[in-house]
């Protein structure tokens, strides 16, 4: 057996160990992710949307200051965006309440 064969053997052993060990480890049979929580998914989505709407308001302010739109349009768009943001905030509050409740009950179950 020459040197190259030895390295080849090492490679095969390396694969077998790295790939094989997890299959017999302590996680065997456990789940990778729990079932997606629809509320959490929506909340995550809304967090991003909220940020985008807030950034849009900032941008609108800036566009107004750099003279890209008139006072009338600015007021109207700003009101619209703020309505949108408030809508998102309300929905997020609702989801937060639900989330806290389930978390509490989950904590009670586990103790």
């Amino acid at each position: 057996m020459n040197f190259v064969h030895f390295i080849e053997l090492l490679f095969i052993l390396m694969i077998l160990i790295l790939v094989g060990l997890p299959l017999f480890g302590k996680y065997s049979g456990k789940r990778l992710f729990s079932d997606p929580d629809a509320n959490l998914e929506e909340y995550k989505h809304l967090q991003v949307r909220k940020e985008e709407v807030l950034l849009s308001i900032k941008e609108l302010e800036f566009d107004f200051k750099t003279d890209k739109l008139s006072q009338v349009d600015y007021d109207e768009m700003r009101a619209k965006l703020e309505r949108e943001a408030v809508g998102i905030l309300e929905r997020m509050d609702g989801l937060e309440k639900l989330g806290r409740k389930t978390k509490k009950s989950a904590a009670q179950v586990s103790t």
Partner: peptide, 12 residues
């Protein structure tokens, strides 16, 4: 949804 398989695949 199996973590053992994931950990194994994760090395590849």
């Amino acid at each position: 949804n199996r973590i053992d398989l994931y950990l194994s695949a994760d090395k590849t």
